[in-house]
């Protein structure tokens, strides 16, 4: 086959890739070099002004990024621990195994925004059922009005919503593990804890790392939960990077600046997640 023909066949795929991946990113970069806002809707060229503003004069973005790191690392850690525990529970033959497998997946199948509205109703401090019940014990926590508890509530809702995703991946991983290492461990007299520490966990490390990274990517975009539950409040206590970019872009209509925020955020996330993945490999994969 002619060498040129090979490229001809590749061309449709390359064009699609260009259209759906490269163009939006390229346009975002171009937009970030403009001052497009509600008053001046045009792709002018202002150089790196938006980036200079971001790095020298926008403390709020960096505070939001710090908060995002705390929320996403905490939620993903909890999702991993709980998801792994649930997966281990239904991995082996237990009564109602199928029922539990489906039950654990239900939160993930619900619509996040709708469920967050329901959670917000639950936790409404004066009209919600949670405080109504707790008032019998003379306790009425400020779930959404206290800086600390508002973060806890966001974490709780995120963990509830997305632990099933972790459960699903980890259960799939467990079901695909080879039987031989477990037989060998059993013959050697290893108990359940030793089997888990020396066989199950190491064998699950690759899929665990994959699941954690996927969830970190998703968790780092946390937006709808914050938007519905707290609007980033009280004050800015639960404001995350995505929510802040949303405010700048679609509330204040500073398209140029929000494009600079988005692109910077993308670069930071690529670097951070690469580092996190390397650390996880080092920590979780035996022999490294």
């Amino acid at each position: 086959m002619n060498f040129k023909h090979k490229y001809l066949f590749l061309l449709p795929g390359l064009l699609v890739l260009l259209g759906i991946l490269i163009f939006p990113i390229g346009f975002t970069v171009r937009l970030s070099l403009s001052s497009w806002d509600s008053f001046y809707p045009a792709l002018d060229f202002i150089g790196l002004d938006n980036y200079v503003r971001l790095f020298t004069d926008d403390k709020r973005f960096w505070e939001a990024f710090g908060r995002l790191s705390l929320l996403s690392l905490t939620t993903v850690f909890l999702q991993y621990v709980i998801g792994f525990s649930l997966a281990l529970m239904v991995w082996k033959e237990i009564v109602f195994q199928r029922f539990f497998r489906v039950l654990f997946l239900i939160p993930m199948m619900t619509t996040p925004v709708i469920m967050t509205v329901i959670w917000r109703t639950f936790f409404h401090e004066s009209l919600g059922p949670v405080n109504d019940l707790l008032s019998y014990f003379d306790v009425t926590p400020l779930w959404l009005s206290s800086e600390l508890l508002a973060k806890f509530t966001v974490i709780l809702v995120e963990v509830w919503q997305w632990t099933p995703f972790m459960f699903l991946l980890l259960l799939a991983g467990l079901l695909s593990l080879p039987k031989e290492p477990f037989l060998a461990a059993s013959i050697d007299g290893a108990g359940p804890i030793r089997t888990f520490v020396y066989v199950t966990f190491p064998l699950m490390a690759p899929i665990s790392i994959g699941a954690i990274i996927i969830r970190l990517i998703e968790a780092s975009k946390i937006m709808d939960t914050v938007y519905v539950l707290t609007s980033g409040g009280p004050g800015t206590a639960t404001e995350t990077s995505s929510f802040y970019i949303f405010i700048k872009g679609l509330r204040e209509f500073q398209f140029g600046y929000s494009a600079a925020l988005s692109f910077t955020y993308l670069i930071i996330m690529i670097i951070s997640l690469t580092i996190i993945a390397k650390i996880l490999v080092k920590l979780m994969v035996r022999g490294n």
């Binding site: 401090e125 004066s126 009209l127 400020l142 779930w143 959404l144 009005s145 409040g233 009280p234």
Partner: peptide, 10 residues
């Protein structure tokens, strides 16, 4: 904020 209902800040 001291005399609104619980959660009134939201």
């Amino acid at each position: 904020t001291k005399y609104v209902p619980p959660g009134g800040i939201n």
